[in-house]
Amino acid sequence: MSKKVIERLKAQLGGKILATSDFRGDDEAVVAPKDWLEAARFVRDDADCAMDHFIDLTAVDYPERAQDGEGPRFDVLVFARSSTKNHRVRLKTRVAEGAALDSIFTVWAGASWAEREVFDMFGITFANHPDLRRILMYPEFQGFPLRKDYPIEKTQPLVPYREIEGIDKLPPFGPDMGQPWSRVDWNERLHGGDVQVSPAIGTQQGQRPSLSKGPEYLPDETPEAE
């Protein structure tokens, strides 16, 4: 049924459709990043496509493709469906690291949160997006977790108190009260540093020496005694 959509796209957009596929019955059309917004708007507005139902927008990371020079690093995909004709299409584009893609927020309002999630997880920026904040992670999070080069066991720095203007309320405890968070700064520890706590909490509570370096790491008196 949705074969027609691919043919219609090919006929109307011509050379802008770089490739098509129908693997396992999923119709897909690949466009260049500069034609992304136009293609999305076309499938929504064209009377034969009429894709008024936003389904999903996501990305896939292929770091090796960029390394080998075979193409840009990320695939960005949008899934859409027609509520009247009940057919679907998947548009795909390839985005390089650091490049911005046009936001399709104006085509389907639902793309707003989906684009925020892709930005949050992959670090792909969307031009003209009205509110491109992180959505699942917190603002201080470092790195983009769904990139392949983000190690799953990576430790994040602890977050210092946020300074927000115009808020009279204070947290019920001060930065030097309560039990300290003894989260290990592994990076520091493996490269010969002396501090145990992560940098953010270290600036708040003062740097503390590592407690678990083993028996040879004892106070400095030992060499002097010899």
Binding site: F54, D56, T58, V60, L77, F79, G110, A114, E117
Partner: peptide, 30 residues
């Protein structure tokens, strides 16, 4: 609602990418 799985395999025994289309996420946006 529509619970979708977009899965990418590279032929090894490990999924390359599993994207779940979460109905609650998009419903919450509305």
């Amino acid at each position: 609602g529509e619970l979708g799985f977009f899965i990418v395999s590279d032929g090894t025994g490990t999924p390359y990418r599993v994207r779940v289309r979460p109905p609650s996420f998009l419903n919450l946006q509305a």
